[in-house]
């Protein structure tokens, strides 16, 4: 839930990086932290265990600066990966404005990806949020690894699309990031479906990290207009 504070003239939006453990969520935030201009970022907070795995969340505020008189800020959060931290995962989703799902491309992690995606849907639903109606981006990370699954397989498993019921929206919508692909399109049975935008990434060297962040933050801003 974005909040517009007319007294302090601030707009804050909350972005959550979700996904299976060790998929690269924290690495995404670290890259943003290392690369964003010093004046634009706040402190990065990591509530982690001694073994460095995220226990509760990582938090990084990023400042867009003052736009038309409003100080505009994105709050970036990651959630812990392991299922036994589900209570904390759910808490972090409270008031979320946009979600990035960081999938681990490795074939061996397919099950973990699917489980985390299902868990994301469930936790959103428990808050009364509909994942198909808020800004949502999927990032296929670790594209550098030799055991990475194909994008087609990952899309089929994690981003098969949801039905478009609103007749006004039943028209082809090209994916601006991938030529020849569609965000809204028709299946072979003639059913209209919509998919989330996706990006490929190698978060350890920063590839795809800012493309992902740019896309989700623009989607979030659109919901304010």
């Amino acid at each position: 839930m974005s909040m517009i504070n007319y007294a302090s003239r601030e707009i804050n939006c909350k972005l959550v990086y979700y996904g299976p453990g060790l998929g690269g969520k924290t690495t995404n935030l670290e890259h943003v932290y290392n690369k964003v201009a010093p004046g634009a970022k706040g402190k990065m907070i990591s509530l982690a265990t001694e073994t460095e795995r995220t226990l509760f969340f990582d938090f990084l505020p990023v400042d867009l600066g003052t736009i038309r008189g409003f100080k505009t800020r994105f709050h970036l959060y990651t959630v812990p990966g392991q299922v036994y931290y589900n209570a904390s995962r759910k808490l972090i989703l409270k008031g979320v404005d946009g979600v990035v799902f960081v999938a681990d491309s490795q074939i061996e992690r397919m099950e973990a990806n699917i489980e985390a995606m299902q868990n994301l849907y469930d936790n959103m639903a428990e808050h009364g949020y509909d994942l198909t109606r808020i800004p949502f981006i999927i990032q296929y990370n670790k594209r550098d690894l030799p055991n990475a699954a194909s994008i087609a397989d990952l899309q089929a498993a994690l981003n098969p699309g949801w039905p478009v019921e609103d007749a006004a929206r039943q028209r082809p919508l090209a994916d601006p990031y991938h030529e020849g692909e569609f965000l809204v399109g028709r299946t072979q049975d003639g059913e209209w479906i919509e998919r989330a935008t996706y990006f490929e990434a190698v978060a350890v060297n920063g590839e795809g990290v800012f493309d992902t962040l740019k896309a989700v933050s623009k989607l979030v801003l659109k919901t304010l207009g």
Binding site: M1, S2, M3, I4, N5, Y6, A7, G95, V96, D97, H127, G128, Y129, D130, R133, I134, T223, L224
Partner: peptide, 11 residues
């Protein structure tokens, strides 16, 4: 939006 309740604070 999706039920996430946005709000604003007036002066």
């Amino acid at each position: 939006m999706s039920g996430a309740s946005s709000w604003s604070l007036a002066e």
